[in-house]
Design a protein around this nucleic acid. Structure first.
Lengths: 163, 163
DNA sequence: GTAACCTGGTCAGGCTTCCTTACAACAAGC
DNA sequence: GCTTGTTGTAAGGAAGCCTGACCAGGTTAC
């Protein structure tokens, strides 16, 4: 079975289409976030809120998953620490390392952000069809697991734990 | 019908998933482009190749569609002119304006780029399912037409010309 | 016709985000 | 103890985009 795109010239490349959707979706998220009490959180900070949970994560780990350099993530973390969203605590297992983790305010912001993303996604399901958005998510999760496993550890579909 | 995402905490926001797919796809495109004779074309230049066709387009027009400032597009065009991909010709209808259009080499590059995008998309259709990628494109085109009509004039599904 | 305003494009300067290079502190193997 | 690797930081720079100020050329009102 061959895949035939409509008209080679009159046709937007797939990455472009994906970006348009991503930007529109993200804009709705940002609009709501900026109306909240967390309006000082900028898009760049996302890599921390995206990956840090519970006990905290090392800078190096965040950098790897986010595909950024340690220095870049370091700056972002500095910023979040200054704003009271994150803190660095010494890693008990390695005196060189620090664990980046969220403050109480940081965790509240993270939870709020997740709720907003869910809300926007639901809105799009209403707008474009529940089935289609569900299928979209399913396909994208499969793609994510295959193309960027480092970025999406939660997509590594844990096999049932039966031995 | 309500839309229920799996697990609020263990779940990647839709914009993130879209970005992962877009980046993976775009990386395949870039890899092939860099192996071609057009390796000096950078991602930023895309806004020109994306929109300019035939007679040419005004700077202002490109800026609007790409959602960039005139200054930014101006710089990008300067760069493309210097590299021999684009040229500015005076607009016969308005002596203030210039039409940005592609040189022969620019058109060749544009055609090559489109072919590469089509090739990568085909590859993904093979990899993830022809039906699913076709459905993905269809949904994304609908979203694009609704959310960013300025960016995607070719998605304004021209009605059949029957009067 | 001319003053006032609008529009297409440019110049200058700045910000954000990310990078590269270099390095200090600590860990681990031998 | 010495070498080698790893964690994080410091300093400086590049890419990509922005705002503000401006000029030349159209357009409108009178």
């Amino acid at each position: 079975m061959t895949y035939v795109p409509k008209d080679p010239a009159n046709w937007i490349p797939l990455p472009g289409l994906l970006d348009i959707a991503s930007e529109a979706l993200f804009a709705e998220f940002r609009a709501e976030l900026e109306r909240s009490e967390y309006s000082d959180i900028r898009p760049t900070h996302g890599c921390v809120f995206r990956f840090v949970q519970g006990e905290g994560l090392r800078l190096t780990e965040i950098a790897e998953r986010a595909k950024l350099t340690k220095q870049s993530v370091g700056e972002i973390v500095d910023d979040l620490v200054q704003r009271g969203y994150a803190k660095r605590i010494p890693d008990p297992d390695d005196r060189r390392a620090k664990l980046i983790c969220l403050t109480e305010r940081g965790e509240a912001a993270q939870a709020h952000g997740r709720k907003l993303f869910a809300k926007v996604e639901k809105r799009w399901a209403q707008r474009y069809g529940v089935e289609r958005i569900a299928a979209l998510r399913e396909l994208l999760e499969e793609i994510g697991a295959a193309e960027a496993p480092f970025a999406a550890p939660e997509l590594a579909h844990a096999e049932p734990a039966a031995a």
